[in-house]
Nucleic acid binder design. Structure first.
Lengths: 349, 349
DNA sequence: CTGAAAGCGCTTACAG
DNA sequence: CTGAAAGCGCTTACAG
């Protein structure tokens, strides 16, 4: 059986250059069909006779064929890579999101490329430029706050993009998340309902979602006629347990009369609880403490921490599913998916 | 100026298919040199005249050329992707390693592909198969314990592989880490030196590194004639703060006479400290508690946790640097780099 | 030091 | 429903 075209290169040389992998050509030959027919079967294109498809599939299995992603990407100008840009990994929040994303995309044949922006617009741009050179199949980014340059890169990329964590009403914007403003307000209302009056807000990092939660805090307190700007303590450093210790100290010096504190993230609140323990401040009798995100350890604190459970796994999985639909030409049932958060009341309030 | 070869496809069609990117062909034409010369300059191959190189570089800058990774990978049978396989991301340990790896590889033009194995050999194999199809430039894997199938995949891949976290004396094995046995022994010796006699070992997950630390614990106690197998509590569940709470309870029921506990990981020890606080067990007077890894929050615990600080960032950075050398044909000064860990003595012991 | 040819392994668009 | 041709944007190996 003669191959269709002559191979000027010796077979041995070809094997060396190609790394010895089984190619689609090998499959087509083994199945006795044309290259393009084999390609159609492998790609799952409709309109191939069942007999032909069966023969190709048999050959694929027998030879152990795996498509070469580089060749595919070059011919189709689209890879199977999916950049996922998150601000930080030291926060378990995003680790959960990423694992859920991976769980959906990898089995579907896509490879997530994790990019950590460190809440920095310039880093986000640099990462995205690097990743866009690889002709990704789609994009997953965190929230909506970014530089104009990055916004342009995203839209010029011409691939679907789904936004994580926040929601938005624009009809052409894909997103999976919840209203950070409402969640912030919900926890604040819980504190008000418990009878606390001088309720402080303490936050670090000061990224977009933090400020949205601050907005929720303000709205809830204004609605109850309890808002006092003097009870807000903002700090641009990264959030951490250690910082929570320091911020509680600062707050108590500033406002010894504070009755309850809403910390923007559980790590800060955990630090504050530990600091209260050390200083003998009774929680919640003398001071109530609440956090946000329900991170590992919060339920085990002394006393257990009241917080807002955020559905990270669901956000990651649903965003990945939406992106998958978009990448494969299906239109998702809704451009914006709102997931449910939950105020978890424990002993600290 | 006529292009060398005729383009049967209309220019417009070509632009559409190629995504409108600037190609090396465009650069070569603009610089007035051959395609291959432009390629050599872009790749940084030696032996190109400075004048030619300058003209090419000028054209690259002016046109904003970025090489197409897919075309490169197809022609050279080597991508710039680097799979990094870690057991878990919920442990900050590996997040630190990954960030350090990224910090070295990304600026050098490589893209890490994070794979989480969940301490599961089958998952590791599945991930690796998926990633190897992409003809990665190198591999970064955690430790040495894996299935024979994965071991074969790694060596058949024919690309350099560096092992993270553990060390090994085989001359052809690349690794960056420290002796988990010695580190476990060092912390145990600290407890012995402090005067504790009935020293327990509590561990979860029971992966290879955990068991190596257990070995260190045993050796140190045997050397001091204090080893008592009844003081070991092992649990195969994943490590967490919540599990630490439960394991301390179990241990105290089993052996109310225990004087000190070495927890295999800080999250367990943090849970134990919180549990001791809640139950009114004085630490360290009644019971000393120590952990491993110096995770966030450990220094803020009440009392602060004695632990072993492990140089995650250094491990990630040096392993990535070693891999970079190997991928680019340089031989690293040493196949095995031992990094320094440190026993951090705080109030809990 | 520079270059023309061949090829990497696929998909696209056009025919029938 | 099936196929032959052209091409994706690079690098490899061979010449000079």
């Amino acid at each position: 059986m003669e191959p269709h075209q002559e191979k000027p290169l010796r077979r041995e040389e070809r094997r060396r250059r190609s790394g010895g992998y089984v190619t689609l050509q090998d499959v087509a030959q083994a199945a006795g069909v044309s290259l393009i027919s084999a390609s159609r079967v492998v790609r799952g294109v409709r309109g191939v006779s069942p007999q032909l498809a069966a023969r190709v599939r048999e050959a694929v299995a027998r030879l152990g064929y795996t498509p070469d992603p580089a060749a595919r990407a070059l011919a189709s100008q689209r890879s199977t890579l999916v950049p996922v840009l998150v601000p930080m990994l030291s926060n378990t929040l995003f680790v959960d999101v990423i694992e859920a994303v991976h769980g959906v995309l990898f089995p579907a044949g896509y490879q997530p490329l994790i990019g950590v922006t460190h809440y920095d617009h310039a880093q986000e741009e640099q990462l995205l430029r690097g990743y866009l050179a690889m002709r990704p199949a789609g994009l997953l980014v965190t929230g909506f706050e970014r530089s104009e340059a990055v916004r342009r890169l995203i839209s010029a990329a011409g691939v679907p993009c789904v936004h994580l964590m926040e929601v938005c009403d624009a009809p052409d914007v894909y997103c999976v998340g919840f209203s950070q403003v409402e969640a912030g307000a919900a926890l604040t209302r819980h504190l008000i309902d418990r009878g606390y009056r001088r309720i402080a807000w303490v936050a670090a990092q000061l990224d977009a979602r933090t400020m949205q939660r601050a907005e929720g805090y303000r709205r809830a307190l204004r609605d109850a006629n309890l808002y006092d700007p003097g009870l807000e303590l903002l700090c641009a450093q990264p959030s951490s347990v250690a910082l929570g210790v320091r911020l509680l100290e600062q707050l108590l010096q500033l406002r010894p009369d504070v009755q309850a504190v809403f910390f923007n993230n559980d790590d800060l609140a955990q630090g504050a609880l530990l600091s209260a323990l050390r200083r003998g401040i009774e929680v919640p009798r003398r001071l109530a403490i609440a956090g946000f995100n329900d991170l590992p350890g919060s339920a085990e604190m002394v006393p257990p921490l009241t917080t807002v459970r955020t559905p990270r796994v669901e956000i990651g999985a649903r965003a990945a599913q939406m992106l998958l639909d978009l990448m494969e030409g299906r239109s998702p049932s809704s451009a914006c998916v709102r997931v449910r958060y939950e105020v978890v009341i424990r002993g600290s309030t």
